[in-house]
Design a protein around this nucleic acid. Structure first.
Lengths: 211, 211, 211, 211
DNA sequence: TATGAATGAGACTTCATTCAT
DNA sequence: GATGAATGAAGTCTCATTCAT
């Protein structure tokens, strides 16, 4: 008697494109993880943002942990290959390279703020959620290698006294973390980066032995 | 046949003391919020760590938000009254004061690492959870006042050119955030603080106009 | 070091008066049960309204069920001894007695609305909560006796044909229930009572054999 | 070694049908709300009665309030479209219409007692639970319109003096409420309805000006 | 590939009640 | 006679995940 509403048809849609849908999911996940963190990013939310049903997400990622890992990897690769590596190519001194790094942080923060926020969030989330431990473990390694290479460059050019190696590395790491954290205030971020670029140049070129 | 823990009886225990229990709850909450964040700190966990039933926590705090607020306030007051204020009393120059601040950060991080981590976590949690918005709002004000006062001191003493005001403030804030974040690596934290203290002294005393 | 707030002293207060406190509790309970029903009347609420701690209520009533039973009994007794019985004394005909009953309902609803609402609520609550079954059981008996006596009076005076006995009783009961329910709209209650008094007088005095 | 019920597996059961399950839930809810009221109708109970897990109910209704609203609407529509409206169609006088209404109440109470009890319970529950206020608000309107139309019909036919309008409406409302309340005693309900039908016919046709 | 129906664990919270003081 | 500290059961609801279709 009553008119039942037409049910959506089941089965594979005719216009489905797996790769593209996967990208959409990954992109939504990245945004949500950056904004809300791991715990508050629910399948329900991602389903709404992608126009899929929650269970459909399992066609692309076997679990929330795997989805997070994929988003994380994507951000990491993007950051290095699109921002950091291009920036430091052809830099031959410590000052040049740090300058290039800081500039690349500033650019990335302006043009791809989501990736920046994802990384800030990731530091917390990978520590808070034991399931994400595997991701956490290979995270600081890359960054530390980057800094180590940079400082070693400075030592080889004589800009940095070799006994300051650990100190300069710790400072660089602190600086970077601070910039990531302040990236939610874009103007302060920009000003701070400029200040640091200037300060470092001054310190190294005129007072290298003070470091 | 494991050793079963003593089954709690109903009613008031023989040696119950409200004030003391409240402290225990607050302390457990502070630790858990610092370690795990707001979402992952569950009543069940706190109950286990305090030896109470989950519902007993409501004798002391009417809701999770209120519990968080209490822990947060305690940490803030402790930080300012026990570490920061004593450190900057009697400092009369920018260099002295920044030096004192950095030293107090280092000390607090070494001796009261939980409070440091709580604050780092709070920056994320108050943003992620709308219920905590009221707490968030009055949080950065204190820090910004502290930095503003410090920079203004430097301007009044001539250590800092007045047009560098915003720049120096942004740098100080970035530095502080970075130190909070790196505080989970105590050794790196210590070395970085020392490096920065030195660098700032050099920059200001010999090249103030470069800032 | 810290100044702990003064704890309220334990033990029996010097000015405690058991009987009076018991009345206060019972009165608060009656009001709350009438307004909110059995389930929504919590010890916490009663404690607030009486200025006692929740656990203090147990000094007077061993359980919520017992408290409810006490309040219920009080209302029942009050209703009969203060409103109904005085009204029907000296009535010698069916019409007089029904008239007196309806008037007493109207008066009670105007002057003691809480008792009226309690009774309306009790009909529901005693049915919904199995714990209250004992109370439910002896509730309609009194009312039915009252109606039976009234109708029998009418039969003895010749106002009511004896074969209408059950019919008139059922109508009286329905009417009474309807008036209890509409008692939350005092004006409608008053008008309805007057209308019914008039209608009954007409029906019985001029058309008794139609009943 | 009792017969353990078959352990449900995860995932979608083989013969699952949403529309049908939704009906089952709604029906169970209606019964339980009628029997036990809003507060005592728990998800656990509904789950047991429908053979689902408590959380599965949320597939069909987003909250308890929404579930209640759906059950309520269903009962209201059913009552009006299946019982009341068919009964009063083609009635052209007050007496006819009231007679038809009373008969329809009697029939509905005999054949669909659950709906009758639901409505009685709803009057209490919508008042006790503020969340249900929205439902309450549009509830008495329909009933009052029904009575107003009926009385106005009587005035237009000359059966009812126009100055008795409010009085007759109040009496009708009281009567209806009383019948709803007494509906749990089907025999008394039936007898009372018959008595009232008779009494009203007598009053109006022979003594209309007494109302 | 996608949906929709289902589960079980676990979240915060309220409540009646108990017992030592 | 009164308080405050405690418990356990239960309530509504959310979440990640599974499976038939």
């Amino acid at each position: 008697m009553t008119l039942s509403k037409p049910k959506p048809r089941l089965g594979r849609p005719v216009d489905a494109d797996g790769d593209q849908t996967r990208s959409r999911v990954l992109s939504a996940a990245r945004t949500a993880f950056a904004e809300l963190g791991y715990a508050a990013t629910t399948y329900r939310l991602l389903a709404e943002r992608t126009g899929l049903a929650p269970s459909a997400l399992y066609n692309y990622f076997e679990s929330k942990v795997e989805l997070y890992a994929a988003a994380h990897q994507e951000v990491q690769i993007e950051t290095y290959s699109e921002w950091i590596l291009p920036a430091i190519t052809d830099t031959t001194t410590f000052v040049e390279r740090v300058d290039a790094l800081l500039e690349s942080f500033m650019l990335m923060n302006a043009e791809n703020p989501e990736a920046a926020r994802f990384q800030a969030a990731a530091r917390i989330d990978t520590e808070r959620h034991p399931e994400l431990a595997a991701i956490r473990d290979d995270l600081p390694v890359q960054r530390r290698n980057l800094f180590a290479d940079t400082v070693d460059l400075g030592i080889s050019t004589g800009e940095i006294p070799s006994q300051s190696r650990r100190s300069v590395m710790a400072m660089l790491e602190t600086l970077t973390l601070g910039l990531v954290e302040i990236s939610s205030q874009p103007e302060a971020h920009r000003i701070a980066v400029e200040g640091f670029r200037n300060a470092i140049a001054v310190l190294v070129t005129t007072n290298g032995d003070h470091l």
